[in-house]
Design a protein around this nucleic acid. Structure first.
Lengths: 209, 209
DNA sequence: TTGCAAATGTGATAAACCCTCACATTTGCA
DNA sequence: TGCAAATGTGAGGGTTTATCACATTTGCAA
């Protein structure tokens, strides 16, 4: 970021659009940003270009987004909300080991396909590490998702130390995200093998004892 | 990066220092960069500041480093070379399962301590995902390290499909790096638990069957 | 020693970018 | 109808990366 002293604080909030007109324009801004990220990555995305493509002035852009990262953040949050619902639904009704194996396996496949198909998501979660605010969002997201998994584990293995199970769930989940990132950054064939290997490894851990 | 059309190519090479004088100056530049990264992170590192702290002009900096990323890259490469020797040594003489368990466990501990102690390394490998050149370096590094691990596995389990073992080794290694990054970005206590959990999980996979 | 090409050193400056701000326009509503 | 709040605009400030024409130093052959 330029024009600002290196500041890792989360960006100060801006007014939310309250009128129909502005809500539509914000939608256009996000759509433009999304398209540009898909084309060239969020790093190469230029604020001026986003504004131009959305058909608004640069000033309007900054009316609703305090800075560049906020746009990426907004897009990332949408994916987050969407996927959390999906994950919660998949794991909610698991009651036995077999069910867990089934649900987890499907979840991994869905995530993998999502990563392969959505260049925006891929780019955002890759750039994640460099941006403190995004990293926090991802960690919070991952924690939330891991909790669903942890809850299942606690149900399945009531005798085991809950903290240990939570740690396992969190780790397995984060490993999964790392495996996805790895898989999509190598060739498709090797990627498939890596995802399959991760699935085996994770299930072995989840169903252990 | 500003002042350049978004270009993901690897930076064009510059003349390497051939005289004693310039070699010392390059050393000073890297030292200055290292100190600044430790203080504020590589993103906040300013080229002007590096030059000033190294006691050289901005022009001299660009004489030996084509761009900002090249400096980070040069530092990263040093860590890479250093750690590869260490890893190779640790895994070279492993001949049985027990030896693997021992060596792997120690290696993880060493890496974890290194990450905790070296803010520069931490910063560089965190920012890795955003920079294509760095990501390639990390992947190549990880592949090389995984090969040592893969070689051990092939020795230990001669009957198993070698490709499968290589995939396992690569995955386990990458999971390890991800686990480290995760561990250092949460509190110390949870970090320790996560590293321990990773160790268990990885060993279970490595020594399976 | 001298002369000279190659290596090295310098900093003003170009170029690109993010973001602000003073001012204009539109909207919702009393 | 009138007016305050919301929204819209884009030139320009400020910061940063990177270049380049020119100055200085070094190594070495004559």
């Amino acid at each position: 970021m330029e024009g600002t002293p290196a500041n890792e604080q989360i960006a100060s909030p801006r007014r939310a659009p309250s009128q129909q007109r502005s809500r539509e324009r914000v939608e256009r801004m996000l759509a433009a940003a999304s398209a540009l990220i898909a084309e060239q990555g969020s790093d190469a995305m230029r604020m001026g270009e986003v504004a131009e493509r959305a058909g608004v002035s640069i000033g309007s852009l900054y009316q609703f987004f305090p800075d560049k990262r906020a746009i990426v953040w907004a897009l990332a949050e949408r994916y987050t909300v969407e996927s959390q619902a999906c994950i919660s639904a998949a794991l909610q009704d698991v009651t036995d080991a077999e069910g867990l194996g089934q649900a987890f396996s499907e979840l991994v496949d869905i995530y993998y396909r999502l990563f392969l198909a959505e260049p925006v998501m891929r780019d955002i979660w890759s750039g994640t590490q460099a941006d403190k605010a995004l990293r926090r969002l991802e960690l919070a997201d991952s924690r939330a998702n891991a909790e669903f998994l942890g809850a299942v584990l606690k149900r399945l293995r009531p005798g085991v130390d809950p903290v240990s199970l939570e740690t396992t769930a969190f780790l397995v989940w984060q490993m999964g995200e790392a495996a996805m990132r790895l898989a999509i950054s190598v060739g498709r064939q090797e990627g498939d093998r890596l995802v399959a290997a991760y699935k085996r490894m994770a299930l072995r851990e989840l169903l252990a004892e």
